[in-house]
Design a protein around this nucleic acid. Structure first.
Lengths: 348, 348
DNA sequence: TTGTATGCGTTATCAG
DNA sequence: CTGATAACGCATACAA
């Protein structure tokens, strides 16, 4: 083994590889970006010494030189379980279109503005905002100032200056309520997470379905806010206590958010109420926690893969056709039947 | 308002700002990086037109030109709740030292290697690996190949080629067990998450404490693996079922992981066992879910702020003094008393 | 404060 | 395939 290590400790460059192999820099470049113009044997040797030298192409130099950007910027909230799966799906989908992904987190001490600015610094081709990290008004404002395509994933409603990907909260909740009705339930409560951006639409789905069946609505208000209580988990406890305080609790509850639903289930359990024996529950989102064997929550699934795919498609479309109108993609939901619903007992 | 918009739709550069104001490019540069050499009035005007033009400094160009890097690369697992708070704390702490943070996710389809490679492409000054995303052997291998400082946060044990930040799992668990003993418990089980990197040390803390009090150990093995079940939540159910199947369950359980502890609590509750009335529980990590009013888990807190601070300090130290020996920082834990422990009832 | 110069590592285009 | 050359946006040194 007689490769003399470079004397400097700076990261290896394409020039280093070229020199070591006695070939030209641009041939190395051709290999690294899989461009035509190099033999299979050359490609092999280049990749080999690249590994040897621990070479990693300088992203900055690359984006600087490239005429167009091949990066998606993704803004997400790390504490939000529903966003993880979307972020995960994003990587392979972006890669399929030739794009890299760079993440930017929104935290308690770091708002959307700095998160987006960081991405602009990376000269992203588009910014994907996952989750309802910001409300429609903020979004509208952002899409006016940012000069690259913006895709909002999982936000409440469409906007004029940016693409939107969301599920049909109305139809999704309607399906959940229909399921409960089909099991014989008539007293079905709904937890209204008023400060959740998508809340209004989901509540509408509940009210319409109940009215169609000529059933009275029973809306349980819960407070909580996105920024404090990332996934409205505390709101689930709050709703549970409201229900527990009643003389006649409903026989079923539609919870428009899995975070709240899981906490609600837990709180009921700790107070001796069994799900689904005493009360049936339907959630919304199908977060990983809903799938735990200890939870087995029947829920309206928002397929994260589909959301991610729609987001990538929207971004690609707007990059390739900047003049096209912003699109609103409504992703289908599906009801995932697990163990949190039972037929109404008619032992009266 | 008579600012003529630039005719091109390329992002604004410092040259654009300089031209619009009739000043030199490098003066703009001076302002943007807060370097000495510009009057207060000039700084104001430059910042103003920068905003107007939607200017964002080109990160790539900047890192390319700079002689040294001012970026920390952070590898994390999005689905892991204990890592969020560390990541959150990282931003302000890094900024205090003049560093930016760039995130790189490990997901089901994206291993540690690609995650680190992405960061190397950004020419980070150091890589921070949050959580036990990889086992000690992998880490050792990585720190051999990567030519920049590596800091492993929350991993099991120290390494030879990289810095390590971790809590004292032995002492932490010991404190938890001591608490249970002080409440009168003598039958205290321990859930061994064998595949969790930090498991061995925590188990040792349990066994030593029990022996010191001349109490018999009761180790409940639980399977589950980091990559499948990000936070060993399913393992909590498994352990619960093991306990429920017994004729004489222990009066208390030390669970070396909050994810498992919460699921264990939930599973017990669903089978009619109340915490802490029927069984006392101590967890480890103090994840956000442990603080929910529906959970109120007494747990060994690994302060994420302290972990982040130690990680940043280690990275800075190794960047500034590359020849110094790798350090192992042990962060103190503290027992957070909540509602999951009660004194042993002596109604026998 | 300004101008001038140079180079960071890469992509890209040419003519050989 | 090579070799030459330019350029991306910015930081930095230096002389005015």
């Amino acid at each position: 083994m007689e490769h003399r290590p470079r004397t400097t400790d700076r990261p290896a460059t394409m020039a280093d590889i070229a020199q070591q192999l006695g070939i030209s820099r641009q041939l190395v470049s051709i290999v690294m970006r899989d461009a035509p113009g190099a033999s299979a044997e050359t490609r092999r040797r280049v990749r080999e010494t690249a590994d040897e030298l621990g070479f990693a192409p300088h992203t900055g130099a690359r984006t600087l030189r490239r005429t167009r950007s091949w990066t998606f910027g993704v803004v997400f909230v790390p504490s939000h379980p529903a966003e993880h799966e979307i972020v995960q799906s994003l990587y392979p989908l972006a890669a399929a279109h030739g794009y890299d992904v760079v993440l930017s987190a929104v935290t308690g001490t770091r708002g959307v503005q700095p998160a987006v600015d960081e991405l602009l610094g990376h000269r992203c081709a588009a910014v994907l905002l996952i989750g309802s990290a910001l409300d429609p008004a903020e979004l509208e404002d952002l899409s006016g100032r940012v000069q690259i395509p913006l895709v909002a994933v999982g936000t409440a409603a469409g906007g004029t200056g940016h693409d939107v990907v969301r599920s049909d909260g109305r139809a999704g909740v309607a399906a959940g309520v229909e399921h409960l009705v089909s099991l014989g339930h008539r007293e079905i409560a709904f937890v209204d997470l008023a400060t959740m951006p998508a809340a209004a639409l989901r509540r509408a789905g509940y009210e319409q379905t109940m009215q169609r069946h000529e059933l009275g609505t029973d809306v349980v208000l819960a407070s909580g806010h996105y920024t404090d209580d990332a996934y409205f988990e505390e709101s689930g406890s709050e709703a549970a206590h409201t229900l527990l305080a009643r003389d006649e609790p409903p026989t079923a509850v539609m919870v428009p958010n899995d975070g709240s639903a899981v906490t609600l289930l837990l709180t009921l359990a700790r107070h001796g109420l069994q799900v689904p024996r005493d009360i049936s529950l339907v959630g919304y989102d199908d977060i990983p926690a809903a799938r735990l064997s200890a939870v087995e929550l029947t829920t309206v699934r928002q397929d994260p893969e589909l959301m991610a795919r729609a987001a990538v498609d929207a971004a690609v479309r707007r990059i390739d056709h900047p003049e096209s109108d912003p699109l609103e993609s409504i992703v289908d939901t599906s009801l995932v039947l697990r163990g949190s619903c039972a037929a109404l007992r008619t032992d009266g």
